[in-house]
Design a protein around this nucleic acid. Sequence first.
DNA 1: CGAAGTGTTGAAGCAAATCAATTTTCGTGG
DNA 2: CCACGAAAATTGATTTGCTTCAACACTTCG
Lengths: 248, 248
Amino acid sequence: MPNPFVMKLEHAVDLTDEDRVRLEKASSQTRHVGAREDLIQENEAPANVHVVLSGFACRYKILPEGKRQIMALLVPGDACDLQVQILRRMDHSISTLTPCVIANIPPDEIRSLASQPRLTQALWWATLVDEAILREWLVNMGQRQADEQLAHILCELLVRLQTVGLARENSFDLPFTQEELGDVLGITTVHVNRVLQGLREEGLIVLKGKVLTIPDVERLKQFAGFTPNYLHLHTRAKEEPGRKRALG
Amino acid sequence: MPNPFVMKLEHAVDLTDEDRVRLEKASSQTRHVGAREDLIQENEAPANVHVVLSGFACRYKILPEGKRQIMALLVPGDACDLQVQILRRMDHSISTLTPCVIANIPPDEIRSLASQPRLTQALWWATLVDEAILREWLVNMGQRQADEQLAHILCELLVRLQTVGLARENSFDLPFTQEELGDVLGITTVHVNRVLQGLREEGLIVLKGKVLTIPDVERLKQFAGFTPNYLHLHTRAKEEPGRKRALG
DNA sequence: CGAAGTGTTGAAGCAAATCAATTTTCGTGG
DNA sequence: CCACGAAAATTGATTTGCTTCAACACTTCG
């Protein structure tokens, strides 16, 4: 079974076989976590780095009035708190959305990985892409209406899941409740429901059970104003070994 | 004249005098930039690290329809593109809002600074705090109404400017137009105007000329739901030299 | 089977957008 | 220093995207 953490970092740098082995080994201590369990809470001092190996998780904050904002969706391959050593306390919480397999990497292990500059670079790349995604989400919330916003998130998920081999050409598992989607978009569940219906009626998406299919990916991207540049996926990793670009 | 870049990083780590000298020297090559000029545009490959030494700048994206979302306000002491080496192309643009003095630090110089682990730590701290601010802005846009949102940004600016010595106890220069504030909050200028009037009528803020005064800081923070934990300011730097905490 | 969680629908209300003027401030050159 | 034009701020009337509240239906699973 391919390790999504390794698959993701392949998009950051050219990993060697040794790098891959080290990453696999570092993420080999895993635990299974049920749906809707906190991995860490706001104000805690983080101990380990977590890496999602399967399932979906999220970063979130709860306001005094009880409202929740989800600030990031974590999919397999995503790491949280790589920066454990630098910021002392969490300013937000992290929880699973579905049952997950989570790797726990102790800080020492991370430091050891980081002795290899290529891996340092890869890990910081992951952090910076997280930041770029946050910026795009901010644009999404500030400037787009709910239907475009939702479409945009779906386009992003398609691409992110494809890079770790968890989405097909135009479909993937979408196991979120409408309430969870609402907490991502900052809208009510009632409105999520209506927006989903709208997208379905337009033929932009098909949502059957928990599987999302996008009949015309280009059309949905167009509708959402989605461009994947902010994901910083260097597609050179796609070239097959032994094949030269100039001859391709 | 104190260097705001140094002042800011004092909040991240305990700098030595040598660190301070190195940072000052690294940011000594400056240039003056007029208001509303781009420092770098989306899709460009960044060459230098920029540090704002005076004035205000911002990160932003423009959508095809022409709408602009400001994703970050950069105040003196803030660096942009510290990660030059890692992400190849900008996924957003950076522009000044007011006339600015900008330090240009070549990548080599940054690498040289980073040979000192304390400074590496300080620079990454700055990047991670930027990310934390983004998360808070997302909460702001998703869950708070326009008046609370605006109040929240003002509280944040007060604190951030105080850490670089550019705000008094309860007031600071706010040289933005209402259009710019609208692009920060994701609302129209008309609504910014009405929201400002609301805050004034409530006595929460006084805005005369370009100077903002907050009559009761605690009250505004309360109204906005502002807590500064996400700015990760370790206040130990506040102690005066030679003065022991236990005796203070 | 029943209960809880999730999804769906309708009606009414509200925050913010939109459209369109008008006034005030500001920067610049005469 | 004033005059002018442009930018910024302000106001009013109308519309709309989304919320709120409330009820009901479907699904899932112990």
